[in-house]
Design a protein around this nucleic acid. Structure first.
Lengths: 183, 183
DNA sequence: TTTGGCATGTAATCCGTTACATGATTAG
DNA sequence: CTAATCATGTAACGGATTACATGCCAAA
């Protein structure tokens, strides 16, 4: 038997633990809060919601007069159980795939200065996300801690901040070294 | 028409630019040198080699008395052309998927101290890879620069080193904060 | 002689994005 | 009225891992 590998269900159940929401909400919140270390598309979310409901891990709310087409789900006891189980097991090793580093590595085969474009592009992208993370950090520090989980949320945000600062510091170093000794 | 997304062919062509090698070699070298930011499996490499040969981007060496079953390939002019083209175009944005961060984020739902296991696990894994990277860095500094590309290789290695140092510093902070105020 | 590493390859399966289809509601 | 956004969903496709199959060669 093959081990289930997709983590989509845990993301969904995790979010539902904060209260009922729809597939569309899940997508939106994932973009807002997890963009820096996670991504999901509708093509995964909606079919997974159906499966989770079939398995009794989430339940459709019976609501009349929902705004628009909204179909909201809540986490069941069984679902919370499974979520807790997953939280106790160790995480899988992350597989990195940085195309930009592949390009940097082989840039010596291309015209002089090719690597600079990649490094500058990299720097620009991570300058943007770093700024977004700093905004989120400040917001978290002043917002009321309704779920008593801000310390946890801030932990993930701060890993992002440290990581992207390291990225930017690297980019500066490369650009400086190149300026001193262009290749 | 859909845009080809797999980057496997560029990894292969990049490696072949340093000299002829086999699918098995490519896999081994990828594990040694790119493990920190790239991964490929045999299931991608061998079919891709066949396609690249069909497209005339690489060519099978006609060798007798090769060691074992070895089938070596070399990069053609056309292949080098395409590789250079790719190097000039910007890299795609990398999508992150850190299961460990998802677990940290939701650990407040599990027994107190659950997050510690994830952070410690994370620290252990990256302590290992950091040490490997430091070894590689030292080796590169003393080895002869046969392809005149050490500065480029070191650039990628140093991004890894900076990143993993940031990871470890984060892990220490989280563990300390938790020790002072367990939740 | 048997074990383990070298070496190539295919098939099954799952994962994930993207494009497409449909329609309601709201803001301008 | 019209455009944008909200909202749900499916189908097609391509990407990637994993398991499997095969066999050689070297070392113990």
């Amino acid at each position: 038997m093959r081990k289930r590998k997709s983590k989509t269900r845990y993301l969904i159940m995790g979010l539902l633990s904060e209260g009922p929401m729809s597939g569309y909400d899940i997508r939106r919140i994932t973009l807002e809060r997890f963009r820096f270390f996670w991504s999901e598309s509708f093509g995964q979310i909606y079919p997974e919601l159906r499966r989770l409901e079939q398995d009794g891990l989430i339940a459709r709310l019976e609501e009349k007069d929902t705004p628009r087409h909204k179909k909201r789900f809540s986490l069941t006891e069984k679902g919370m159980e499974m979520l807790r189980q997953w939280l106790l097991s160790p995480a899988e090793t992350e597989q990195m795939r940085f195309e930009v580093l592949l390009k940097c590595y082989f840039s010596y085969l291309a015209p002089k200065g090719t690597i600079l474009n990649h490094v500058k592009d990299f720097r620009r992208r991570y300058t943007d996300v770093l700024n977004q993370l700093l905004v989120i950090e400040r917001e978290l520090q002043v917002a009321p801690d309704s779920f008593n989980n801000h310390w946890y949320v801030l932990a993930t945000v701060r890993l992002g901040i440290k990581t992207y600062r390291a990225y930017l510091s690297w980019a500066e170093e490369i650009l400086n070294e190149f300026k001193e000794d262009p290749r």
